[in-house]
Design a binder for these strands. Structure first.
Lengths: 139, 139
DNA sequence: CGGGATCCCAGAAGATACTG
DNA sequence: CAGTATCTTCTGGGATCCCG
């Protein structure tokens, strides 16, 4: 009985994986995971999304202060890329000096939730990974 | 009532995000998401994990055939990196010619499940992203 | 068969200076 | 304040050759 369940699990996983690769042609020649990953797999997007998720709205220099180490250029590039994909909105207030506010869209908040799930898994298993890494280094 | 629920949701999200950053110091100066992402955020790890997840066990050249476009070097590098982190096992059979089998560990299978969840979200929302990208391009 | 070692390059990211 | 422009630096990954 247990064996059957485990076997069923396996088959489901295999089907899902097959589905991912079936869709490859339709979606600009790339599997959806890779495509999504391209959106936040870079060096700064995650931090940007997390900060906007925590603070709800932030100005350019506020973000720059919160994301330690990021350069002006990379913050600009990152925000433009997130905006392009509809994950972030950019609102310019025509004042002097200018004020620009960034927020997550609903889509961006959805992605944030996925990231947090991934973070949960990561926190649960990070120690195993660190241990494995150390074992590997000692061999 | 509904407003309170939404507000509760928000607070939960904020707490989670704060937790991620609280742990930064303890975990080699990096938040766990970034650390995990470093494991499969590269160009080939995902495909490797997906293939091993689908086939259960694979030899070096079988993998190379399944992952179109990958070079010998990058397959080696990718597999070593996954092995180092305890996501993949490498078994050498001392025959002539040599035979080497790769499999996902339990940890690797756990990560695979996370990836599949991400894929589910991706498939649901990829079209929104593509639309947003097109709108952005036309402005 | 399953790699290791070496060379090389494009594109990502940092530093710095300037601007509406 | 919120960028843009330009230059340089760094790194991931491809190509090639070799080996047990």
């Amino acid at each position: 009985m247990d064996v059957t369940n485990i076997e069923n699990q396996r088959v489901k996983v295999q089907e899902k994986i097959n589905n991912i690769f079936d869709d490859r042609q339709g979606l600009s020649g790339c599997c959806p995971i890779k495509d999504i990953l391209g959106r936040f797999g870079d060096k700064w997007s995650i931090y940007t999304i997390l900060m906007l998720g925590r603070e709800e709205k932030l100005r350019f220099n506020e973000l720059k202060g919160l994301i330690s180490g990021i350069s002006q250029r990379m913050l600009t590039v990152t925000l433009r890329s997130l905006e392009e994909d509809g994950l972030v909105t950019r609102t310019v207030y025509p004042e002097i000096p200018p004020r620009v506010e960034y927020r997550l869209t609903e889509l961006g908040q959805g992605l944030l939730l996925q990231l947090l799930q991934l973070a949960d898994w990561a926190k649960l298993h990070i120690q195993e990974i660190l241990d494995a890494r150390q074992r590997y280094a000692q061999q």
